[in-house]
Design a protein around this nucleic acid. Structure first.
Length: 283
DNA sequence: ATGTGTTCCTGTCCGC
DNA sequence: TGCGGACAGGAACACA
């Protein structure tokens, strides 16, 4: 699930129970996530205050009073659960422990944050705050799609000469960071560009036109996530999963929703991932 | 340097 | 109802 909008929703949901609060205790049930968790993680977390919660690409970054930053990546199946606190105006009691609860943070005021990740593609790390941009997972990330450095000129230059399909290029976090499989499909649909088109074959105009579309798609999804946080009425305090309707993703065989198109949504596999697109209006 | 395929894990769903 | 295979929102890594 977690692409940039979901990660941002998780960050916003964690903010009230983390920012300005103390980590009183940390449980590590399984240290072997995608990579081993950092040495002495519990000790380095215990007693630390959370100064601020940030997001870079699909990473949540919690700056601690110790001068270290806790990096959180959700991978494919990572979930964050808040309990012992109000979420969206509703108090969520502590649930029974579940199978893949790998890390549990016990915060001040009795709140608890549980990181659950069945596939264990997620990760956590601790790294000096001042050196965060040099963290090995962060340093080669491309620009933030919602930031100022990401503009039409940049996009055109980044795609120029690329032989790879545009679908693959937009998934490449070095080109632009934060998009995943779902939102790349949605972006290409809105742009009317076939996922099979070679990135370098796009005109500078069409490449540049991707920028406001990418921003809109992400912004819309973040807003949908925000409203799901506001109206939190689910049984648990799980963050980041919100019902969002997609125009093409997972709609193989359905009719294209673009006015007067009448095409059919197709699915192909590109570099091992499904691409959904309209064969008629995406060129 | 680039582009492509494989790999890490578990869970779910679909057809036989 | 069981079983095998495909597939899942990520991304590093090994290889041509």
């Amino acid at each position: 699930m977690p692409e940039l909008p979901e990660v941002e929703t998780v960050r916003r949901g964690l903010e009230p129970v983390m920012t300005g609060q103390l980590i009183e205790r940390a449980e590590v049930n399984r240290p072997d996530l995608r990579w081993p968790l950092p040495e002495r993680m519990q000790e380095r977390l215990i007693g630390q205050s959370v100064l601020r919660l940030r997001r870079r690409s699909k990473y949540v970054l919690a700056d601690l009073g110790s001068g270290e930053t806790l990096l959180i990546h959700l991978g494919m199946s990572g979930r964050m659960l808040i309990s012992g606190a109000e979420v969206g105006g509703f108090y969520h009691d502590h649930p029974a422990p579940e199978k893949h609860d790998h890390v549990v943070l016990h915060m001040g005021q009795g709140a608890r944050i549980t990181f659950n990740d069945a596939r264990r593609f997620g990760h956590m790390d601790l790294w000096p705050t001042e050196d965060m941009e040099n963290h090995w997972l962060i340093k080669s990330l491309g620009p933030e799609p919602l930031g100022n450095a990401f503009d039409g000129a940049y996009m055109a230059a980044a795609l120029k000469g690329k032989n790879t399909p545009i679908k693959t290029a937009l998934l490449d976090q070095r080109i632009v960071s934060g998009l995943g499989n779902i939102y790349v499909c949605e972006v290409l649909f809105r742009a009317g560009i076939s996922p099979k088109r070679k990135a370098g074959n796009l005109s500078a105009e069409r490449a540049g036109a991707l920028v406001p579309i990418i921003r809109d798609v992400l912004q819309d999804a973040i807003e949908a996530g925000g409203s799901s946080l506001r109206d939190y009425r689910q049984a648990d305090g799980e963050l980041g999963y919100f019902q969002h309707t997609f125009r093409v993703y997972d709609r193989e065989g359905e009719a294209c929703t673009r006015d007067a198109c009448g095409g059919e949504i197709k699915r192909i596999v590109q570099s091992g991932r499904s691409s959904f697109y309209c064969g008629t209006c995406q060129r």
